[in-house]
Design a protein around this nucleic acid. Structure first.
Length: 715
RNA sequence: GACCGUUUAGCUCAGUGGUAGAGCGCUUCGUUCACAUCGAAGAAGUCGGGGGUUCAAAUCCCUCAACGGUCACCA
């Protein structure tokens, strides 16, 4: 054996051997209890980031259960990541001086498809380099034909059940990206913007958006506001930048008499509140901003100006006409931004497909409250319930091409929609007209993702997989997509299969840069996990991510910690070297008190590690392993063994072999490599998990209790 | 505005009622015999502030503060 551990000589060779031997497929334990995790599918278009490296905790669970003899499945996949991927692709087009509008729909789709197919293998090889024991024979892609078929069928079922409807509503529209978004994809930012006080005939009102005034169809005041009661229900004459006009005054409780002047302009086509007010008072919708982000013909001479230009132009005109009473320059409010390009989101009226969420949320709420689905750390339960209890209908239409095209056709004769489970309809389902056109839009990528657990297991090619592995045991991902993904999987899973999609939701924290800042491309502080794997070895990176931070908390990437875990790997290597290569002459077959003691403590460690893994307290397990292997086994037992007259090689090897097994889920490569040298034959990955008696030793953590005992010994 | 998280040794962080811990850093010593990627010893903390419960609080309760985050339609 080399004097120091060299991961570069080991990792790839070991991984290939595991994969070829079939160790990753559940059939390796045919008689065991099912244990399954569906890997959150990484975006197919991009290399992995540090969040993905945190999937190491899934590998720990999988390897632990595999060694325990469970029929264990970890199913990998890739996500087409609709808008995200198209966005990346469009950036690339931009560099070439092109835009998506230079291509026909089919060509653009084909190009992105090729782009994704070229990138996907990178991501998959990276998962291998991290040592993840995924069953590659069952890998799925969100655009696989059989997956798409299931997504279509779900949409059809929702439609038939009256849970999907098409309606013209205000949607969150990004005029820069040219698509609408769901509420979750809107981010809010505090900004200081001028608040303009505008004269409306006899009234004055405050607004941040004077350019939308062409879309006003009323003015609202609070019904009890004495100042304005005489106007309610009447029309007032106002002078505008486009000349004289008449406008209705309505009384509505939503108006806060204490804000501004207590008068609000009602612009139903461009404001969510106003849209609701308009519904209550039967006010018309007047759209003055187009989907291109420019003022339309209803804005008169301001037509063609972008929103921001129009705002200053209108303000300037109002100033000239004396319509501007004052400007509050220090007004701070929150404005809606596109989560991706950070430009303002425009509320615009658009016909879209919506999913009625309340009926879907109710059973999900019940499942969580009844503890059929549990969350770790538990604090996330409240967040999820709060979201589900206040849920609104979900806009699932996206105006992009990269995704699953919505299987709905509009009749050009009767305007009725025909929805199918994917097949092309011959004619309109209502009037039988032959002239029908498919919706151009595609599904929100989360709509298909929400079906991932059952969609994958139904399409592995193995008919028993769904029956065997659904509901899955654990859904593990980062907490930032709890609402986007996990909550929706619960709802769609229960809707489609009448069963929960998974039992335990386990959520890891964010890996931040060494200064504790979130990694992001714009900040330029992104660290490639694979570079660290190259430098420190996969085992060290894995262990560093689990060790030293309570599971579920955010952590800053720490180079000292990576170095420490690499030293740890080297320490283990050298313990192995000592036991395997430096056999002194004085070994005996007698088992001494010291031997019995270390055997007992090792059993305690096995219990501690097992219990910690099952409670998703991976950091406890890692710390116990680190402490025991280094400071108990190596520093005390092995050191002392050098000076003893007689040493039991059997105990030495037995304990060490147990330690390798316990450590294997965390550091699979080095443990496998040493294990093969210690006892060539059966791969460690499918060895039996160490046995331990059920009895507990009290509440103290293992690491501490072992320390206390050694302190006592000295006395 | 509501909710959540964090606040413990110089740094990064464990620790949910019973005499304050780890890694890194620092000090001293040792070690040619598995490992200098080693070993032994040590210095270092009013556990954010204040109040309360308890025989006992870093840990439970109340309150305040700072930082981070999530959700919420206020023009």
């Amino acid at each position: 054996m080399d004097k120091a551990y060299d991961h570069k000589k080991v990792e790839q060779r070991i991984y290939e051997r595991w994969e070829k031997s079939g160790a990753f497929v559940p059939e390796v334990n045919p008689g065991g209890e099912p244990f399954s995790i569906i890997l959150p599918p990484p975006n197919a278009n991009a290399p992995l980031h540090f969040g993905h490296a945190m999937y190491v905790v899934e590998d720990i669970l999988i390897r632990y259960h595999r060694m325990k003899g469970d029929k264990t499945l970890w199913l990998p996949g890739a996500d087409h990541a609709g808008f995200e991927t198209q966005f990346v692709y469009e950036k690339q087009l931009q560099k070439e001086g092109k835009s998506r509008f230079d291509f026909k729909r089919e060509d653009l789709y084909k190009n992105i498809w090729d782009f994704v197919q070229a990138n996907r293998p990178i991501m998959e090889s990276q998962l291998r380099k991290l040592g993840f024991s995924l069953d590659w024979t069952r890998k799925k892609f969100t655009l696989d034909e059989d997956i798409v078929k299931i997504v279509y069928a779900t949409f059809k079922k929702l439609y038939d059940d009256g849970l999907v409807y098409r309606a013209e509503r205000l949607v969150n529209y990004c005029t820069f990206d040219g698509t609408s978004f769901s509420d979750l994809e809107v981010v809010y930012e505090e900004q200081k913007n001028p608040l303009f006080y505008i004269k409306y005939g006899p009234l004055v009102l405050a607004t941040t958006r004077p350019e939308t005034k062409f879309g006003d169809t009323a003015v609202a005041v609070h019904p009890d506001d004495k100042r304005y009661q005489k106007y309610i229900g009447k029309e007032i004459e106002i002078e505008t930048v486009l000349g004289k006009a008449k406008i209705k005054v309505v009384g509505d409780g939503f108006v806060d008499p204490n804000f501004g002047t207590g008068v609000v302009k009602i612009t139903p086509a461009h404001d969510f509140d106003d849209f609701e007010v308009a519904k209550r008072h039967n006010l018309p919708l007047k759209q003055v901003i187009g989907f291109d982000g420019k003022m339309n013909e209803k804005a008169g001479k301001f037509q063609g100006l972008y929103i921001k230009q129009a705002r200053s132009a209108v303000v300037e005109e109002m100033r000239k006409k004396g319509l501007l009473e004052k400007i509050d320059e220090n007004y701070i409010h929150r404005i809606a931004l596109c989560y991706k390009c950070k430009n303002p989101i425009e509320p615009l009226p658009l016909e879209q497909w919506f999913v009625k969420m309340k009926p879907l949320a109710a059973p999900a709420i019940n499942a969580i409250k009844a503890k059929k689905i549990k969350m770790y750390p538990t604090r996330h339960t409240q967040t999820t319930l709060q979201f589900l209890e206040n849920i609104k209908d979900w806009n699932i239409s996206r105006q992009i091409v990269w995704g699953i095209r919505i299987p709905a056709w509009e009749c050009s004769d009767c305007d009725e929609w025909t929805v199918t489970a994917g097949e092309n309809p011959k004619s309109c389902s209502k009037c039988k007209s032959l002239i029908i056109n498919q919706d151009d839009d595609v599904f929100d990528t989360w709509f298909s993702s929400s079906q991932w657990p059952f969609a994958t297991l139904m399409t592995t090619g193995n008919d028993n997989d769904f029956k065997t592995f659904y509901p899955t045991s654990v859904m593990e991902t980062m907490y930032d997509i709890l609402l986007f993904w996990v909550a929706r999987m619960i709802m769609m899973g229960i809707y489609k299969t009448s069963e929960i999609p998974f039992k335990d939701v386990v959520l890891h924290g964010m890996v931040k840069d060494p200064l504790g800042k979130k990694m992001s491309k714009s900040r330029g502080n992104v660290i490639d996990p694979l570079e660290l794997v190259e430098q420190y070895g996969a085992d060290s990176v894995r262990f560093a991510l689990v060790y030293g931070t309570a599971f579920g908390n955010d952590q800053a990437l720490s180079y000292p910690k990576l170095q420490a875990t690499r030293y740890f790997a080297n320490k283990i290597w050298n313990i192995g070297r000592f036991i395997i290569e430096f056999k002194p002459e004085r070994y005996s077959k007698k088992i001494s008190g010291k031997d019995r003691e270390i055997l007992g403590k090792t059993e305690d460690l096995a219990r501690c590690v097992s219990e910690s893994i099952e409670k998703y307290r991976f950091h406890d397990a890692a710390e116990a392993l680190y402490e025991f292997i280094w400071h108990e086994f190596a520093d005390k037992y092995v050191e002392e063994a050098k000076t003893r007259r007689e040493v039991s090689q059997i105990v030495l090897e037995e304990v060490f072999s147990t330690l390798l097994k316990l450590l294997h889920p965390f550091m699979p490569f080095i443990t496998e490599e040493i294990y093969q040298k210690l006892s060539p034959g059966k791969p460690l990955i499918i060895e039996k998990w160490p046995h331990f008696a059920k009895a507990t030793r009290g509440k103290q953590s293992f690491a501490r209790s072992s320390k206390d005992e050694s302190a006592n010994e000295k006395k």
